[in-house]
């Protein structure tokens, strides 16, 4: 099915939901402030500090070994300076996304969902660093939010989504393909529509839409390929939604791998096996980050 048709269907689905989560007040004010010309980092920091939960989450996301800052970030202002104004918008949106779905991810165990999301964020950043992609923060945030559509289906179409999950259990079937059969669209397009509603910058909307088919991307196919690969690797290394989807892939045949290889030929030398084993080693870091973000017991 054509992507435009899938998006049309997703729009209809999202439009029917009356109680769609909205962006928390402070985050919204931050976004408005960022739209103004000549905004100062101090102003943004002062505003963000009025929301303690958002501040704490931003700090945890940036100070974790999952993100690996070059040096410890001790204050929100330093965090904002470190990131630069260009990333504050995404960070405010990402913490909003976390707040909106912090208590319930419907059909999913919320912890499994966020562990996968932060896992993909971490691996996206690692791949970005390995290939020398210019904006590693963008890769990190893209990874965290790539499955926005999954949490929508899981929350607002809970029963049908559970049926989808049951039908693919232990089968080498792609979740998105099965979703299209049941909903006429997949979590990629639904996430895209939600991200647009929330005014995520276009490049993030594209990653959400194309994280399973980076070849369709127009703005930043490399970023889409990075997140696609990170998603695949997390799917086979215990950051896989508690095993709800049985992922399998032949790396060298993956379009994402080919997109990246074309751009970064030295990727051919990547020690894929070791990459997987190191990913296993990093799983506790991801779990710790998720439990600290939600203040659950570590």
């Amino acid at each position: 099915m054509e992507k435009t048709q899938l998006i049309e269907k997703a729009e209809q689905l999202v439009a029917k939901i009356e109680d769609l989560p909205t962006i928390p007040a402070v985050a919204n004010q931050v976004l408005q402030l960022l739209d103004q010309p000549d905004v100062e980092i101090e102003q943004v920091a002062d505003l963000m500090l009025s929301d303690q939960v958002m501040t704490a989450r931003v700090m945890k996301m940036l100070n974790s070994p999952v993100y690996k800052p070059a040096s410890e970030i001790t204050s929100l202002k330093r965090a904002l300076v470190y990131l630069g104004l260009r990333h504050i918008r995404e960070l405010a949106l990402t913490t909003s996304f976390i707040s909106a779905f912090e208590h319930d991810a419907g059909a999913f165990n919320i912890t499994d969902f966020w562990e996968h999301s932060f896992g993909v964020g971490m691996v996206s950043k690692i791949i970005a660093a390995k290939v020398g992609y210019r904006d590693q923060e963008k890769a990190y945030i893209s990874g965290i939010i790539h499955d926005l559509g999954v949490v929508f289906l899981s929350t607002f179409k809970r029963d049908d989504f559970l049926a989808v999950l049951d039908s693919i259990k232990d089968r080498p079937v792609k979740l998105a393909d099965e979703e299209i059969k049941i909903f006429g669209t997949s979590h990629c397009e639904i996430g895209f529509c939600m991200a647009r509603k929330w005014n995520f910058p276009d490049v993030y909307c594209e990653v959400i839409a194309c994280h399973h088919d980076p070849e369709q991307a127009a703005i930043d196919p490399i970023l889409c390929a990075i997140v696609n690969l990170a998603d695949l690797f997390c799917g086979v290394r215990e950051l896989n939604y508690g095993g709800r989807e049985w992922v399998s892939f032949n790396l060298y045949e993956e379009p994402a791998w080919q997109v990246l290889r074309k751009e970064y030929p030295e990727l051919a030398n990547l020690d894929v096996e070791r990459f997987c084993y190191e990913l296993d080693d990093a799983i506790p870091d991801v779990k710790n980050l998720v439990s600290s973000i939600f203040n659950t017991n570590p």
Partner: peptide, 10 residues
């Protein structure tokens, strides 16, 4: 040889 990945191994 090329790697083919699946949950928990390759």
């Amino acid at each position: 040889f090329k790697t083919v990945h699946f949950p928990g191994g390759f």
